[in-house]
Design a protein around this nucleic acid. Structure first.
Lengths: 204, 204
DNA sequence: ATATTATTGTGACAATTTTCACAATTTAAA
DNA sequence: TTTAAATTGTGAAAATTGTCACAATAATAT
């Protein structure tokens, strides 16, 4: 089992590095990444060492080298294909979200039970859910985004898994039950916001 | 400093408990919560003990008692008011998101620079950003949701902080720089999805 | 050329978090 | 009423995670 905290930090590093690169830097010091991301410099060095990226004493790390190593860690040679289940508020926003492209992630199909939502105005085709099997047969789908209402989330989730999907980014406020070999990441907007409120309003 | 993992677990417990309650239960055992949430039973008990919730040996815990304790931990007597900056894809989806109400969270105002988006069709009023000060003077705002494009995120964030906001839920793919007393929670959709893909596609 | 300074890389340490294991206790059964 | 079974509550142990401190070394200044 691999620490997700570590993996998460890598993504944070990459975000900062892409910013620093845009600003014109080619090399960075551990404390620079630390300043950008909020992690300690020692931890940054430990992480880079674990990533097998070498720096030069007194010269720092090369940004491109780090970024390549991170990309490689996430196996980003090819485009990753995902599907989107649910074209309500959140689903539609996700469908229009441009940032995925930068990561080489493509939403190849969306599903919604409502016929009115099928094939409407997005450049992602929208099908009824029973088309899922066909899509997964046709493409190699790496993950699904689940953006359906809470009451149907488990059922839709089960179907996605039946179609061979092993990774789910879940927006429904539900604790999904899935087999061991399926990975679920819960994006709980209310919980997240509640935590922010909690931390912001408690006397420091 | 308090562990956010613990706080996060509490929210997960609450979600499961509300589900179990709907299903008709009034009492639960630690292993039941464990099964629902994926944490270990021992950890659940430790957390409940830390929350000062008492169970009965052989009788389990009362759901309502746990839920009250969790709500109290998050200080949910009154309605929490938040503002929303940015009415693009994600901002609009958030504006229409119904689940916040259940948590006693209310979006009292939204901001967008685009005049076309101001006051359009939502039941949340949309103002230009310079109205922010007025809003924060008028209401006690507990947090802000930042859903503006990456290039303007830091600037908007600075303004929010200037208006006295201490908590930010950030959707922009940017590592915000904020003073120590401001809490930021980053919702990185691309990172999240990338992690899902990573875990789902690596050979287990 | 030499000395000085800055920075990495890492082993040892500290802190935190989780699990383990079992006594205490309650309930149910015999 | 006694025994058996189930479950909490929690110290102690284990595991994990992060920090500290400093030797090694590369770059720069003298």
């Amino acid at each position: 089992m691999e620490s997700t905290a570590y993996t998460k930090r890598l993504l944070t590093y990459r975000l900062s590095l892409s910013h620093l690169k845009e600003v014109g830097l080619t090399h960075v010091f551990s404390y620079l990444i630390a300043g950008e991301t909020g992690f300690s410099a020692a931890l940054v060095r430990k992480d880079l060492s674990r990533l097998k990226v070498k720096g030069k004493r007194r010269g720092g790390y090369e940004i491109d080298t780090i970024m390549e190593a991170i990309n490689e860690h996430f196996g980003q040679q090819k485009t990753n294909k995902v599907v989107l289940a649910g074209m309500g508020n959140i689903g539609s926003a996700i469908a229009q979200y441009k940032d995925f492209k930068k990561r080489n992630i493509k939403i190849v199909a969306a599903f919604d039970l409502d016929p009115a939502k099928q094939r409407k105005g997005y450049d992602i085709p929208v099908y009824p859910l029973n088309k899922c099997r066909d899509i997964t047969m046709e493409h190699t789908i790496d993950a699904a985004i689940l953006a359906v209402p809470a009451f149907s989330a488990q059922a839709v989730c089960d179907q996605l898994i039946q179609c061979g999907i092993r990774g789910i980014m879940n927006f429904a406020p539900v604790n999904l039950k899935v087999p061991e070999n399926v990975y679920v990441s819960n994006v709980r907007l209310s919980d997240e916001l509640q935590q922010v409120i909690y931390h912001a309003t408690k006397e420091s």
